[in-house]
Amino acid sequence: MQNAAAVSTAARSAAAASRRGTARSRAARDGTERVIRGALLGCALLSVASTFTILVILLAQTGQFLAMPEVSAWEFFTGTTWSPLLGAEKHFGIWPLVTGTMLITAIAAAFALPVGLVVAIYLSEYAPARVRTALKPVLEILAGIPTVVYGFFALTVITPFLHDHVSESFGTYNALGAGIAVGIMILPIVASLSEDALRAVPRSLRDASSALGSTRFDTSVKVVVPAALSGIVASWLLAITRALGETMIVALAAGGLAHMTANPADELQTMTAYMVQIFLGDAPAYGVEYRSSYAVATVLFAMTLGLTIVGNLFLRAFREEYE
């Protein structure tokens, strides 16, 4: 340590040296700050603009579609026949597409929600650290695989398997094969987000449960899962949202026949698959069929937006619990 005189001498020199450079102007500094702040706000507003633009486009095009002479709004929202490309009489009743989407989503959810939750419980409550570090990449790879690959998988592996080992009635295109593939796609979302929710449950809760003589099963299922329920539900809703909007899998593996069916062996068409069919060029631009795809997109957008909002509400409840 130096002596006191050296310190104060140095301090005086430092004070002098700090004034030696050329001062920067306050006006320039404040101006820069304002310009940058404006630019950053601009970036942030871009995302608002894109939501707004999506809404305007969808609503405007849907309005024009519903105003066309071939279409009635009543039929669109209640009709059970969707045959825009077939022959003389065109029908635009959205329900076959909606039920098709829902059947695929239901199959996917029936597979992915429980399986994802069990995987999450295993990873968070049971798995030794080594197993965990080996399993996390598996989920990450599953999450990173493009959906078109799952579509190919449904077409070349799942559907032949169903045809050979379950029932001859499964054709090249069927709801179950596509639904399972969608389920595999959303599985990592459920598993990793649910695991996050489970791990956010404080250790003390587990300790309290163990100290009362619970087995690990009791602790996991009766204490930890209920405590993390809102986070788990949020992950489910997010996964369902992704399943509703999934396009490439169903376009490849579910077929192109829009009809109302509950039979998983049937070919069917979802809202997204119909949009693919139109945008791939089966219909002349600005015709009634073309416009109908915007109306379908509007319905899809409304469904996913509703689910996202509900999911965010759940997540907010979940955050309040542990912060």
């Binding site: 942030a44 507003l45 995302s47 608002v48 894109s50 939501t51 633009t53 999506i54 486009i57 969808l58 997010l238 949202t241 509703l244 909007g245 999934e246 396009t247 997204t272 949009m275 693919v276 945008f279 915007y294 997109a297 899809l300 957008f301 996913t304 937006l305 689910l307 996202t308 909002i309 999911g311 965010n312």
Partner: peptide, 21 residues
């Protein structure tokens, strides 16, 4: 908070709808 809410909701929009945009 509106921008934040908006971004949270954008994350749930199906990619095909972005295609339309």
């Amino acid at each position: 908070s509106f921008i934040k809410l908006n971004i949270a909701n954008l994350a749930g929009v199906p990619s095909i709808v972005y295609g339309i945009l």
